[in-house]
Design a protein around this nucleic acid. Structure first.
Lengths: 231, 231
DNA sequence: ATTTTTCTTTGATCTGAATCAATTTTTAAA
DNA sequence: TTTAAAAATTGATTCAGATCAAAGAAAAAT
C-alpha cells in the first residue's frame, strides 16, 4: 500500500514517515467487477485511490442513460473533490473490473494537511488538471460530432499505448460508447464507416490505423466522413 | 480593491495585513463589453477576479460554434486552475459587459501561499466546487433535453433572484442559448412552446412563471413537453 | 464441446435540434 | 423622430444520432 501511495501525484512529495502515517489511516478494499463504490449524492467522508484495476465515474439519467466522466486506473485518486468542498459525491463510482482501492478518511487526511499544509499544493495541481480535463470533455461533447470524438480517442490511445498504428481498446465497445457520449449502435456504425473508408481496421478490440492522415483530419474537423467515398 | 479581495471565497480568511499585501501585487484592469481577456491555450501567468461586471468563459469550435462554460460575476475568480497546474488557460475569457477585473500574478501569489500555506485550503474548496459544477454541466448537456435544461435554468434563476414566479433574464437570449448548449432559434421555439402551454409568460427579458408545478415536472424529466396540449 | 449469456452488428424508422432563410421586433445611434 | 444596427422570432427543411427490433458473434459457464 505504501508504494501505491508514494506513486501518486497527490502524495509524491511525502517522505517515508508521512507515507507511513498515511498508510496507517488508509483502508484497503477489494471490489468485484461492477461493484458500486459510491453513489451520486452520497455523503463524502473520505476519498479513494485506485491501487489496482479500473474504476469508472459516471452520471446517470432518470431513464437509465449513462455518461462516463472518467475511468481511473492505478495510482489515480477519485472522489477527492467532495472532500475538500465538504459536499456529497457529484457522481457514481463503480469498479469496471476486479479492483483494489484505498480509502482515505477525510478527518485524518485533513489533520495531515494541517500538520503539513504545503501538501495541499499537490492536491491543487490534481484538481486543476481534473478541471482542465472536464473542460475538454465539455468541448468534445458539445462542439464536436461523434466521428471527430472517436478519431480523437483512437489517436490519443495510440499515443498513450505507444504502439505505432495499433490500438487495443481498453474497454468494451458498450463502455466506450458511454465515454464518447453516444450509443453502442451508433459507435458500431461509425467504426463501420471508418473501416469502409479504409481509415482503420477493427478486429474485436484491436484497431489498426490504416490512414492516419485522414484520421487526423477527421479528428481536427478538417475532413468530414460524408465527404469521403465509401463503397 | 481590498474590499473585493476580502469578499471572495478564496481570500475570505485573510487578515488585513494579508489583504493589503495581496492588494499590492494585484493589478486592476478595465474591460469594454466584448473585450477578450484571454484566449484558450494562452500561457497563464496569473489569474483574475471579477470586481465589477460579468465575464464569460467559453469554448469555441473550428466553425465558430460556442459553448459557454460559466459566466462569472462580482467576487468570483476565474482562470485560477491554470495557475496551479502550471498550464495554459483551458478556455477563452471575455467581458460580457463593461467590467473591472483584478489580475493577480502567479509568482507573487505562490509566495503568499508559501508563507501561509493554510490558505491553499480555501482554493481547494473553490476548485472542488467548480469541479462539481462542471459535473452538473456535463450531466445537463449530455443526459437532458433542452426543455428540461431550460426549465431547470428558469427555476434556478427564480431561486437565485428571489422574486416569486418572476425571473429577469440576466443575459440576452443569444447568450442564454449558448449557456444551455443550443441555438438562438431553438431556444426561441422552446420558450414559445412553454408560453403556448401556459407554463410561463415571456416579455422581453422578463419571465413570469404561470405553472410552477408543470415547469418543475419538466425540469425533472417527469413530464414531457410533447405530452402537453398546446393549441 | 455445448449451452447460455453477454456483446456487437445491422436494418428500419423516428426525432430533437440544427441549419438556412426571411421577417419582425427591439435597441441604439444619428 | 427617423434611421441604422442588433436581437429575436418564425417557417421550411435537413441531419446526426437515438430508438426499436432482430440477428449474429464472442465470451463465459456448465
Amino acid at each position: 500500500m505504501e508504494k501505491t501511495l508514494q506513486n501518486t501525484l497527490m502524495f509524491k512529495s511525502f517522505n517515508n514517515a508521512q507515507i507511513n502515517e498515511l498508510a496507517k489511516i488508509s483502508i484497503l478494499k477489494t471490489c468485484d467487477p461492477n461493484q458500486m463504490i459510491f453513489f451520486d449524492n452520497d455523503t463524502a467522508n473520505g476519498f479513494y485511490l485506485v491501487k489496482k484495476g479500473k474504476v469508472k465515474i459516471f452520471k446517470m439519467s432518470e431513464d437509465g442513460k449513462e455518461q462516463i466522466l472518467h475511468i481511473f486506473g492505478k495510482g489515480e485518486p477519485f472522489g477527492e473533490a467532495a472532500v475538500f468542498s465538504n459536499t456529497s459525491f457529484p457522481a457514481n463510482a463503480q469498479a469496471v473490473v476486479k479492483s483494489e482501492i484505498i480509502y482515505i478518511p477525510q478527518k485524518e487526511l485533513l489533520e495531515i494537511f494541517k500538520k503539513d499544509p504545503s501538501t495541499a499544493m499537490n492536491v491543487l495541481a490534481v484538481l486543476s488538471l481534473r478541471l482542465k480535463e472536464f473542460t475538454k470533455l465539455i468541448e468534445n461533447l458539445t462542439l464536436k460530432e461523434l466521428p471527430e470524438r472517436l478519431a480523437l480517442y483512437i489517436l490519443n490511445q495510440e499515443k498513450v499505448q505507444g504502439k505505432k498504428n495499433r490500438v487495443i481498446l481498453e474497454f468494451s465497445k458498450g463502455q466506450l460508447s458511454k465515454i464518447l457520449g453516444t450509443t453502442q449502435e451508433t459507435l458500431s456504425r461509425t467504426l463501420g464507416k471508418f473501416s469502409k473508408a479504409k481509415i482503420i481496421n477493427v478486429d474485436k478490440r484491436e484497431i489498426i490505423i490504416l490512414n492516419k492522415e485522414l484520421l487526423s483530419d477527421i479528428s481536427s474537423g478538417v475532413e468530414n466522413l460524408k465527404n469521403i467515398d465509401i463503397e
